[in-house]
Amino acid sequence: MNFNEAVATALAPTGKLRVTINLGNPILANTDQSTGRPSGISVDLATELAQRLEVRVEFLVVDAAAKAVDAVTNGSADLGFFAIDPVRGAGIAFTPPYVLIEGCYLVRQNSPIRDNSQVDDSHNRVAVGAGSAYDLFLSRELRRASIIRVPTSPAVIEAFIEQGLEVAAGVKQQLLSDARRYPGLRLVEEPFMTIQQAMGVAKVRGDAAIQCLREFVAELKASGQVYALLTRHGIHGATVAPPHSC
């Protein structure tokens, strides 16, 4: 699909598409070690969108989802990549999800916790990245366990170990990587949530711009481009969202 001039102006009012990239989710974005620039599926999707808008793209790199949300809501970025959540939805309009990833728990090998139902206990402390999708979700779902928020998602494992916490929560792939780096840890295999990753813009950008973004994501899923990007970046454990998911 192509974007008309009015939509292009709504999405990129400065003449360039300013996109915030959250490095706190390594499934979607990382720093290219050879160039120092951000890379990953979210970077590629933003670049594709800028090409269709016929503007250049500029990346605002952050280390936490909450910072990306702030950048889009305060107007310092035009577009971001987020997990869909009703709290964020107060000011941000989401496209349908393009990728689904899993949120899981990590515990010590000798932990009595074997399934998700055992986490919400008054003696358990759960480390989460502040403002992350799983922080927002668990803040609604956990009634007895304590939530310990750390500044960024990649810092969760360090806080979990250093503070002797009972549970770490995060993206499954990140936790599996952590378990390989730190002996004596194990993943609780059953996901506690499915994280729907979407593109998001401030609602004030208007219905026409939002609808065009939704059609853009739907097209990239249907054409196989999202799947190709997952393959290109070697992302395992994430799946392309169904065509009509919302």
Rank of each mutant, 00 (worst) to 15 (best):
L11A: 05
L11F: 06
G15L: 04
G15R: 13
K16N: 02
R18V: 12
R18G: 09
V19Q: 05
T20P: 14
T20L: 09
I21N: 03
L23C: 12
N25M: 05
N25D: 15
P26H: 14
I27V: 13
L28Q: 15
N30R: 15
T31K: 07
T31C: 04
D32R: 04
D32F: 06
Q33V: 14
Q33N: 12
S34G: 03
G36H: 00
G36W: 02
R37F: 09
R37L: 15
P38V: 06
P38E: 01
P38Q: 08
P38M: 12
S39L: 09
I41N: 14
I41E: 14
S42H: 09
S42D: 15
V43Y: 08
V43H: 11
V43W: 09
V43N: 07
D44G: 02
A46S: 11
Q51G: 14
Q51L: 05
R52G: 10
R52P: 00
E54A: 15
E54P: 00
V55K: 13
V57D: 06
E58K: 06
E58S: 14
F59Y: 13
L60M: 09
V61C: 03
V61D: 00
V62H: 06
D63Q: 07
A66S: 05
K67S: 10
K67V: 01
K67N: 08
A68W: 07
V69C: 04
D70F: 11
A71D: 13
V72A: 11
T73R: 12
T73P: 07
N74P: 02
S76T: 12
D78W: 00
G80L: 03
F81Y: 08
F81C: 00
F82I: 06
I84C: 06
I84K: 08
D85K: 05
D85W: 05
P86Q: 11
P86T: 05
V87E: 12
V87L: 10
V87C: 02
R88P: 10
R88G: 12
G89H: 14
A90T: 08
A90K: 15
G91R: 11
A93R: 15
A93P: 00
F94E: 09
V99C: 09
E102T: 03
E102D: 15
G103E: 08
G103D: 15
C104Q: 08
C104G: 00
L106N: 04
L106Q: 08
L106G: 02
L106A: 00
N110V: 12
N110Y: 02
S111K: 01
S111E: 10
S111A: 05
P112S: 01
I113G: 03
I113M: 04
R114C: 01
R114F: 05
